[in-house]
Design a protein around this nucleic acid. Sequence first.
DNA 1: TTTAGTGCAAAATCTTTGCAGGGTA
DNA 2: TACCCTGCAAAGATTTTGCACTAAA
Lengths: 150, 150
Amino acid sequence: MPYKYYRGEDRKVLQAALRDRGFRSTEGRLTLLSVLKRAKSPLPVSAIAERLRSTLDEVNVYRALEALNEKGLLMRSDMRQGGARYEYVRSHHHHLICSDCGLTEDVEICADKRMEKKALDNSRAFAKIDTHALEFFGLCKACAPRLSYA
Amino acid sequence: MPYKYYRGEDRKVLQAALRDRGFRSTEGRLTLLSVLKRAKSPLPVSAIAERLRSTLDEVNVYRALEALNEKGLLMRSDMRQGGARYEYVRSHHHHLICSDCGLTEDVEICADKRMEKKALDNSRAFAKIDTHALEFFGLCKACAPRLSYA
DNA sequence: TTTAGTGCAAAATCTTTGCAGGGTA
DNA sequence: TACCCTGCAAAGATTTTGCACTAAA
């Protein structure tokens, strides 16, 4: 492969992460993880595929993202911008999303376990809750001045 | 049109709702709203277009959903199942979603204004927050027995 | 050696855009 | 009458599937 997206240090960590979940450690998936680990915000599939052009075919980017998401190594989030986005999972968190330009920022605010329990208690049809997604929509400081008078 | 999805009573309410937001009251949009108002859960675009086959072209279903969502008459939600879903807005609420069969249930639990404020206070890049989306993922009572031993 | 992972081709879905004509206000 | 809304055609974007080949364990 023409370019290393990761340093040696990182590589071992990612290899271990893959093997721990029963995956084989391949160049494509290592690079994919590395790209997402470095990203400052969730990336759309198109952007990920773009950066992996020489390493992993777009079709397999979809397959890999799906598999890694399934095992909790990545998190998929839908941000009302058409198409899924994925991010490397460091810790549980949520997002602020600008309705105008799409900028995202992480927030630590969380609908915690207490809230999950409350939701389950109020439910008729559900037996258990595993996780949740919380997104805040608003305007970032760059877009707000342009739009807030509307 | 071959079939009425709404009763006379409802029709007036929906007409008013449309006009209040600056829309024209057309058969297509009235029927669309009626379909969603009766639905027990958020519907994917394909299902909506299906039911409106004889009333509103799929292309215009997309246009109408987008417009009505924009004005708050409908709510769009992405439920990690590929493709957007829409529901008629009665009051602000959120969803429980079964990771296996896709069943959804409304919950009144909410990341309230206090939480939005907290998120904004912790943010560096955002100027305001308008709304939020909160989804709980788990297993419904029908699917849990089949899967929980896994 | 076994089989998960991959590339390539092709198709299925999902969504948007353009434009001329029809219906609402 | 003005122009929002619509149907139809077409294209663009997103995602999935099939299959033979490659490479990790």
